[in-house]
Nucleic acid binder design. Sequence first.
DNA 1: TTTTTACTTATTGTCGACAATCTGATGCTC
DNA 2: GAGCATCAGATTGTCGACAATAAGTAAAAA
Lengths: 228, 228
Amino acid sequence: MLATDFKEAITAADRVLVQIRTAIVEGEIPAGTKISEPELARRYDLSRAPLREALARLERCHLIERTPNAGARVVKLSIEGLRSLYQLREELEGLACRLAAEHMTEQEIAEVRALLDQHLSTQRVREGESYYQEAGDVDFHYRVILGSKNPYLINILSDELYFLVRMYRVQLGMNGPRVSRAFDEHKAIINAIANRDGELADLLMRRHIAASKRNIEQQLLQQGTSHG
Amino acid sequence: MLATDFKEAITAADRVLVQIRTAIVEGEIPAGTKISEPELARRYDLSRAPLREALARLERCHLIERTPNAGARVVKLSIEGLRSLYQLREELEGLACRLAAEHMTEQEIAEVRALLDQHLSTQRVREGESYYQEAGDVDFHYRVILGSKNPYLINILSDELYFLVRMYRVQLGMNGPRVSRAFDEHKAIINAIANRDGELADLLMRRHIAASKRNIEQQLLQQGTSHG
DNA sequence: TTTTTACTTATTGTCGACAATCTGATGCTC
DNA sequence: GAGCATCAGATTGTCGACAATAAGTAAAAA
């Protein structure tokens, strides 16, 4: 099921997947928690069959880890995990930029630009409100990824890796000057794509992601040293 | 479940997954076939619950495509699909090479070299037998991928993309001089890794994969023009 | 003849119960 | 007292049956 598919029919498994997924990403179900199927089935008021279907998909996007006959656990956030994840993300979104510079239509590029302007105005109103930054950033990256027109790349980035990326970002947050700086970086990236300069877009995207990684890394280090 | 995990407990879903997966990869269940859950359940003599678990994992590695309430279909092989897949594969295995040059131990490198020598001797005995070439090639790539030490990269390449890659290769085959040439390319790649020259290993791997792609592409084109 | 509609049929999605397996605690042996 | 075996409890894996949805067919109306 690629992100580009239309939602043809919503099943109970789909609904509970979205619910549990956001609960994990937002930290409502804390990292490292043991997942109990009977408990979740009661909590979301359905049987274990669709629940297990949802758990299988959560495993697919690395939000939980399952071991046969032993159950599932919400993934733990760690520095090594962050580095591995962002290492891959740099490479893949860099590729997405090169492909987007090649395949995005003028129409699509114009839409992304409109999106950025809209985010900017929203951001100015709600200064420092990191949630809007979060949503806007995800949206921007999502558009570029779709612009690559490579279904496997789209699937991996937006269906598999992105929820874990969001989990790191939501739980460890963006802070300080990064929030406003990210807008300028997005602008520069879409400009490069508009100029059909894939190499530059690639480079800028890698730097953008690397900067984001350093930011979260610091949060993780601080949290690690202060509490443990 | 990463490929690096130990097989802690084999469940019925695991067994039937392997069976159906090889059946699809080898073409025993032809590309484009509609998957009937009751039929497969009878055929493999188990209930639909573990079967559906297996189907979920087959969807994950892009061997089948599911639409809600409408069932699953074995994926069709196409030129566009091949290009998208190999585009991603080039990028990811290139990255794997750079990381392997950084992280593989001398021990691991020596093992890969021993593996190659072993493959070479086997190959000489069974000249032109493409199955051994297939197995050997997969094994080589698998070792390099593991050498990257990046769990997400390992998961995507060896658990998700590789079965589809094998499906293209098994059903459309390796032919002619590619078979023997691949050995030399493998040698060159592991040499670059041994020299800790990540950039060169990256480059060589991309070329290696690109050559493989062209080979399969030709088969697909010939097949497409000759049969309809 | 073509289109629409109702119906039949088969398939998928979901449920509750049973079997196999793991976890933790209790008691026994050394 | 430490270590191991055994057992109780709970959890996961699997099963067969029911409900909901989609596909195909035949009949009726335009």
